[in-house]
Simulated scan of single mutants.
Amino acid sequence: MTDRKKVAIWLLTGVFLVIAMVVIGGITRLTHSGLSMVNWKPISGTIPPLNEAEWMAEFENYKTSPEYKIKNYHFTVEEFKSIFWWEYIHRLLGRVIGFVFLIPFLYFLFTKKLKDKRLLKNLVVIFFLGGLQGFIGWFMVKSGLVNDPNVSHFRLAIHFITALFLCCYILWIALKLLYPEKGFIGEKLKSFKTWTNIAIIITVIQIIYGAFVAGLKAGLIYGTFPKMGGDWIASEIPKRLDQIGILTFIEDSASVQFIHRWIAVVVVFAIVVLIWKAKKVSLKGIQFKLVTWLGIIVVFQFVLGVMTLLMKVPVTLGVLHQLGAVVLLITLVITRYFFRGKNKPFTV
């Protein structure tokens, strides 16, 4: 096995762990566990409470939070334990990811397997983004520990989108190691790069609005589709426009849900255009397979989103819907990678 392949496998392991982190983060949010740990202890926080005295001390810390005072004032220590563990696992996995990146990085560095200076710079960027993501996570949690026992939906969106950016950045570097050649040929395929870029941009906007929906708990209202109740546009949206103006599109629950619904349709349309173009030019190989998979994933994700809304966001569907967004974005990024050049066709 070549050194390039070893480094790529290491990076792909990191991609898988970041995705797992996103999934557990979704479970943590949907089980209302995210504010159970009111302190950020990067080192000492690795070890959970081990006896009843330590559990009571942790519980007393939780009692100082607005979530306990306003929502969970009736909780016993046993009920506290039920929400503690998901947040603990979420933070613990973050530490594991740090070690998974650090230890192999030092090994590759000292065994001189990282001779490419550009690759070395990219790895330094990954470490920076990973540390930044940890800080943003605490910055998000802190917003729910002041007065309102709900995290800021803006900070939630930043936390989610930076995690996905980190995931896609690592993936791109791994792909460059595994498939360094560039690959589309002919003028007729240039539009694939453009349409993939458009689809990525729209999907990112959709993901941001998905985080807004989650943070504002907007998925729990207007549980009908395609109409919002009996209207195509919820009646309260014009009223909110009069009250707060353009801010309604990022702060009002009904407006955010409305936008999230219809951007989903735009994402589906963009992928349909890619599939239509692929058939028109008789696209082949890995490029055709990826475009086909995009079609399957986007339909599955759209249906899953509708089901999640109709069923009032059960934990399982909510997590699967979040994971579907991650898979769709990653597949788009991989597709974009295989349309990045113009020297020769890929033979994968």
Rank of each mutant, 00 (worst) to 15 (best):
R340P: 09
L309R: 01
L92E: 01
P180Y: 11
L216M: 08
K239F: 03
G229I: 10
K115L: 15
E236Q: 12
K121E: 01
V151K: 13
K5L: 09
D3A: 12
E58H: 11
F212A: 06
W40L: 04
S82R: 15
I70E: 14
A174K: 09
V273R: 08
M56L: 14
N147C: 03
L30Q: 09
K115G: 12
Q287L: 04
I286L: 06
V96R: 07
A211T: 02
L283S: 03
G245D: 15
A325T: 01
S44E: 06
L166E: 05
K280P: 07
L50V: 03
F108W: 11
L35W: 01
L102A: 10
G305P: 04
A199I: 05
Q133M: 10
Q287K: 04
Y179D: 04
S143I: 03
W232A: 15
I158C: 12
L109N: 03
K344D: 02
L123K: 04
V124A: 12
Y107W: 13
R95V: 04
F84D: 12
V256Y: 05
L177D: 11
T331A: 12
I246S: 10
M311E: 13
L92H: 00
K279N: 11
G14T: 01
R155K: 14
D242R: 12
A57M: 10
L175S: 07
N122I: 05
P180H: 11
E78Q: 14
M37G: 00
K113Q: 15
W232V: 11
G324F: 10
L132H: 00
Y337D: 04
F338G: 05
L106D: 01
L30H: 07
I297M: 08
V306F: 14
G285P: 00
F160E: 00
K121Y: 08
F302R: 02
T64K: 02
W138Q: 02
M56F: 00
V281T: 06
V146W: 05
R4G: 10
Y222E: 15
M228W: 09
K112D: 13
Q301K: 00
I271M: 08
T347V: 11
L166D: 07
G324S: 06
S235V: 03
E78P: 05
R118S: 08
F300A: 15
V268G: 04
N147R: 09
F99N: 12
P180E: 14
I97W: 05
L309N: 02
I198M: 07
L123E: 08
R4W: 08
K142N: 03
M56A: 15
K284D: 02
E87A: 01
L92I: 02
A53D: 08
T331N: 14
I271Q: 06
K182E: 15
A218H: 01
V281S: 06
V256L: 09
R95S: 07
G34M: 03
S282E: 15
R29F: 13
K113D: 08
K342W: 15
I173S: 06
L12C: 09
D148V: 13
W85M: 10
I43E: 02
W40E: 07
V151R: 13
I201M: 10
M311P: 01
I296L: 12
